[in-house]
Design a protein around this nucleic acid. Structure first.
Lengths: 134, 134
DNA sequence: TTGACATGTGCGCACATATGCATTATATGT
DNA sequence: ACATATAATGCATATGTGCGCACATGTCAA
């Protein structure tokens, strides 16, 4: 059996891609992204230029960001140019948002929200008194 | 001096709140969120019921999520009821998305995008050939 | 081929954190 | 007061990971 609530709960796993969030929870990686926005496109040496970390560390961060599809890479000669994949970033955020919106009606307890009818009934969402209070 | 590109770069720091992303990069916490959607509202004991972790671990995760404003808490007697803060979650995602969209035009290298005029000129974004290439 | 340059990788260290157990704190009920 | 129930906290530990160093890999220019 799959109630709307159960479907919504399972949607959490699709919405919250932990690997993707992990990529954005590290200040060093955000700094790299910031520099990419600043210069548009650059090789690892230039990106690591004004950053405190070692080149190899920046290289690994960029590999991670590329694997998650947050930056794109282009190898030319001995240089490896990285670039922020803005469209993919926006698209991913839009997907997460689209998957998260349907969760809101289920934040409140009670079985009323398990029916699709409750989704269009604002009055069904203000029940915080009669449920548990064991 | 503050070029549009520099402003966009600085917007990264506002858009990508690493603490908030950290909250969502842990599978155990996503599982907790999933259970909250499933039951709507519950105390720690019920939330931890079918989860492999110890109650104390679940308690700490919930404290973290509450500090980041992803869940809301209500203490009644000796019970502590948690609930997903769906509206806050959606609002945060909308904010991140709104701050991220303006970054897209700056993903491409070159100074053309440093002028506001470039934002409304689609033709200015297809320069990937004449910039570095050592 | 040789040397210089840009990047990738193996390894170890230091620190963060997720986890479980034991204990304590707070509230409830008899 | 006492026992019980629920949650929070202190502590130890295992795992994860950011980091730098040394070295390997690969490329370009002589």
């Amino acid at each position: 059996m799959h109630t709307p609530r159960q479907k919504a709960a399972d949607a959490c796993l699709a919405a919250f891609d932990t690997e993707w969030f992990k990529a954005l929870c590290e200040p060093a990686r955000i700094e790299i992204i910031r520099r990419l926005v600043l210069v548009g496109r650059a090789d690892i040496g230039d990106i690591a230029e004004d950053l405190p970390q070692d080149r190899s560390v920046i290289s690994r961060h960029l590999q991670f960001l590329e694997r998650i599809n947050i930056v794109s890479v282009e190898r030319v000669g001995r240089h490896v140019y990285y670039q922020l994949n803005g469209p993919a970033l926006v698209e991913k955020l839009e997907t997460v948002l689209a998957l998260t919106r349907p969760l809101v009606p289920f934040c409140c307890p009670g079985p009323e929200n398990d029916t699709v009818a409750a989704l269009s009934d604002p009055g069904a969402m203000k029940n915080t008194e009669e449920f548990p209070h064991g």
